[in-house]
Amino acid sequence: MVKNRPTRVMISSLRMIKREFLKDKWALTALILLCITFVTIFIWALFLDTDKVMTVSVLQQYDRPGTNGMILGADQGGRDVLSMLILGARNSITIGFAVTLMMLVIGILFGVIAGYYGGLVDNLMMRFLDFMMTLPMLLLIIVIVSIIPHYTMMTFVGYNAL
């Protein structure tokens, strides 16, 4: 009698993924670079003052790269392009991961409920999902953002998950 078969299958699957990654040097290099990029973005963003980065300085408008400590130069508002790039990347990555995790949980719960009850409940839930998938999400997000006057990243993630 085999005990813990699902656990053994999962461990062997993870070993197979690890073995394939180690064989493919390009994939391993890309994974390492991606991890380094994510860690660098999140650590660098900790040391940035958001208010200072977003302050407009007309005197530094379109500064060349390397002047006034701005590695990538300044934009039309005199703001440091690299700092804004780091903050924007951090926000985008955070929103992407948060929405993905929320959709994972909601999708699993929705599927479990539909599968467990079946019949009419399953049919109603699937028709609701069909309707939601016909809505243009970008347009819906633009409407939600224009309705809410002061939104944060977390309120955007919450509305984006719907």
Rank of each mutant, 00 (worst) to 15 (best):
I71P: 05
E20D: 09
G66F: 14
L22M: 13
A74H: 05
G77P: 00
I11A: 12
T67L: 12
G66L: 08
M54T: 08
W44Y: 13
V53F: 07
K52L: 14
Q61C: 12
A45Y: 09
L33D: 06
L101H: 02
T50R: 13
D24P: 04
I95A: 11
L101K: 04
I86T: 13
I71R: 08
G77K: 00
T55Y: 03
D49S: 07
M102R: 07
V105A: 08
D63N: 14
T50I: 13
I108M: 11
L22I: 13
R90S: 11
T29P: 03
D51Y: 03
I71N: 05
V56E: 12
L101S: 11
K52T: 15
I41C: 01
S13D: 01
Q60F: 09
V81P: 03
F38S: 11
G78M: 12
Y62P: 09
A98W: 07
D75P: 06
L46R: 10
G96K: 01
S83Q: 13
A45I: 12
A98S: 13
I43Y: 08
L104C: 10
F21L: 09
A45E: 12
F47D: 07
K52C: 03
L14G: 12
L34G: 15
M102L: 13
G107E: 10
L46M: 11
V99Q: 05
F47A: 11
L101Y: 13
R19L: 03
T7D: 07
V39S: 09
S57E: 15
D75N: 15
V56D: 10
V58T: 14
S83V: 00
W44V: 11
F38Q: 06
A98N: 05
S12A: 10
L87R: 06
I17T: 11
A98K: 01
G77Q: 04
